[in-house]
Design a binder for these strands. Structure first.
Lengths: 211, 211
DNA sequence: CGGTTAATTGAACGCATTCAACACGAGTGG
DNA sequence: CCACTCGTGTTGAATGCGTTCAATTAACCG
């Protein structure tokens, strides 16, 4: 657990935000920051899961990313939040002003940390591009489940988001997601104990399906 | 022209790379840097157009971005190039070692510039995500043409890449791209003077189609 | 228990793909 | 100048995947 955080946070931004941040509670679907708000604070997930999303002009919803315990979010390419952030379930988030972090660690370390976090965002975005641009429904869902299960190597895995969130994230409809999950379960690749909890039965098969 | 460069390069990275860089010539489809190579240099397009691309395990090709005159490329989230870079047409590229830039401008300015460029990459990636995740073929092609035409407000616009590159970039097949272009032309929204040169006839219609 | 929301399933449709044939343009050599 | 070829782009017909719309079922919570 500690190792994971260290690996994903070589510049210490997550640690600093966690240390300086004020813990705040958010309930299911509560907004943590809004779309088009000015960027002023940094956030770190302490408990629960957070999603970033935005709505396009024609009403379609796009999920930016899902953030899990330890992850930092609130970084944006520009001065405004391009995405809103909401708690998926009841969550605890450490919140701190950017200026406070800047003051605490100095400008050089701050920039380095922001750069590092931005790089990680870019990395995720590019991985996601491959999924959306070139993968079939089964491949998308399989990749997604692998990503979730990868966080907890074996045993039952929590599926913190609903089908609609999955669908918006994967660029599919809720019906296709549902059908695909049913199919994967029918093929004994994964097994759902409940709607929000599953276990990988056949890792090689899942990897093959994720292509 | 100068204004455009300034707007897109507030931290001067493009200017520095252009100034320090050694101009190199690349012919059509020639590789500028390879996939999985270590990141050691920065590049700036002087003349021509450059594409970044990578091939997945199963042989599908993904286009990262297209870079035009003035654009900086060669930035990556990690220590290795996730994408290869190739010249689309005969091009001139200014090449400079990262270490040389670092030494020339100092660590603080270097980091700021890299951060800024990385942010722009992230911005492009997220815009692209919206296209790939939620848009139809017509919307994708229309958006793409708008993006190209936006660089040169009016008159004939150069289409520097072939249909296959467009298709890979937009997550479509070459046939669908071709059909869509034909359709847009039939609807008098755009007009192709030749295969690689077009003009926007109805801006409002094109914007509407791009959604 | 109902009442409500979320998820699944079914059937028909439509868009993009696939596979195949054809057109076009540029370059080459007769 | 024409014939030939090769690469690239276009067009056609059939298929299939994911969507759409609608109905049903399951889960959750009082």
């Amino acid at each position: 657990m500690t190792l994971l955080v260290e690996v994903r946070d070589p510049c210490g931004l997550a640690e600093v935000v966690g240390r300086l941040g004020v813990p705040m509670q958010f309930s299911r679907d509560e907004e943590i920051h809004g779309q088009d708000e000015p960027v002023a604070r940094l956030f770190r997930v302490v408990r629960g899961v957070v999603r970033t999303s935005r709505v396009t002009i024609d009403g379609r919803r796009q999920i930016g990313e899902f953030y899990y315990a330890g992850d930092v979010f609130g970084l944006e390419p520009g001065p405004l939040h391009r995405f809103a952030a909401e708690a998926l379930s009841d969550s605890e988030v450490a919140v701190v002003k950017r200026s406070a972090v800047l003051q605490a660690v100095g400008e050089a370390a701050f920039n380095a940390a922001i750069l590092d976090a931005t790089r990680r965002e870019l990395d995720m975005a590019q991985a996601h591009l491959l999924v959306l641009g070139r993968k079939s429904a089964v491949q998308r869902v399989a990749s997604f489940l692998m990503g979730l299960a990868g966080r907890r190597a074996a045993g039952a895995v929590d599926l913190p988001m609903g089908r609609q969130d999955m669908a918006d994230y994967l660029g599919l409809t809720i019906e296709t997601v549902s059908r695909t999950l049913t199919q994967l379960q029918g093929d004994r690749v994964v097994e759902f104990a409940s709607l929000r909890r599953f276990q990988v039965r056949e890792w090689p098969a899942l990897e093959a399906l994720a292509a």
